[in-house]
Amino acid sequence: MTLSLSKDTIQVTKEQDVVFLKNRVKETAVKIKMGLVNQTRLLTAASELVRNMMRYANGGACIIEVVSSGRANGVRLTFSDSGPGIPDLDAAMRDGFSTGKSLGLGLPGTKRLMNEFNIKSKVGEGTVITIIKWN
C-alpha cells in the first residue's frame, strides 16, 4: 500500500520550467533525506522524462509526491502529457530504440534507475509515466 503524503503539480511548457521542476524534485528528495546516489538517480530520471515530454509532446505536467509504503519513504513523479502517444511501447522500452535522433536510452535507462516504473500511452491521447524512487 503506497500512501501519498504531499502533492505538488508543476506545469512544464518552457525551458525555464524544466529547471524549476528539477529544483523542486531535488528539494523534495532532500526533504525526505534521500541519499546522494538515489537523489542523482531520481534527478537524472526526471531529466530524461521531462526532456521526452518537451520534445515529443510540447510539454505537459509533472506531479511530485512524497509517498510512504509504511517502512520506507520515497518520491513519486508522474509525468503526463497529451502528445502523440507511443505506438509501440515494447520498442520504446528497448535500449537503442529512438524515433528522434537521441541514443534511445531515456526510457529503458530511466527504468533501470528507478524502483518502480509504469508507463501508459495511447496514440493520439498522450502518455503517462509514473516512477518511484524509495529512500
Binding site: L36, V37, T40, R41, T44, L105, P108, G109, R112, L113
Partner: peptide, 14 residues
C-alpha cells in the same frame, strides 16, 4: 566526475 554521476551513467547504459 562525482561518484554518484558515474553510478548513474552506467546504470543508464551510457
Amino acid at each position: 566526475m562525482q561518484p554518484a554521476v558515474a553510478i548513474t551513467l552506467i546504470e543508464l547504459g551510457l
